[in-house]
Amino acid sequence: MFEFIVSYYNYWMYIGLMMIGFYAMMAKRNLVKKIIGMNIFQSAIIFFYISTSVKKGATVPILENAHGHATHGIEHGANAINVMQYANPLPHVLMLTAIVVMVATLGVALAVVILIYRRYGTLEEDEIMKLVRRG
């Protein structure tokens, strides 16, 4: 059991970070605080995906000698690419898209927050709900 917890320690880190963001989204009343919680939540998910690509003893995924007497495509024998030498680049590419989407979501959310502030004059959720109920 202890070995299970230690060997999957990146899972526990990302779950803790995700719960901090989730708490901010659910329990905080200020709208900017909710957006900060959403940002933390999204980067926790990106953290989990990137941590699945790590290998022990691996370096950055750039081919060595790619412009010299190099290995092009699939080869066998001494010229073959040693996959265990490089980190897995597929989660990196997926998460690049996720980071850009994260900033787009942030921009739209902040625009909506500015419109809400112009309409109601406050950013606290309970005060906004009181004003909405009054009509």
Binding site: I46, I50, S53, V54, T59, A87, V93
Partner: peptide
Amino acid sequence: WTQMAAIDVAFT
């Protein structure tokens, strides 16, 4: 992310 060997994600 830099120390997890994801430099492209790090500079983005």
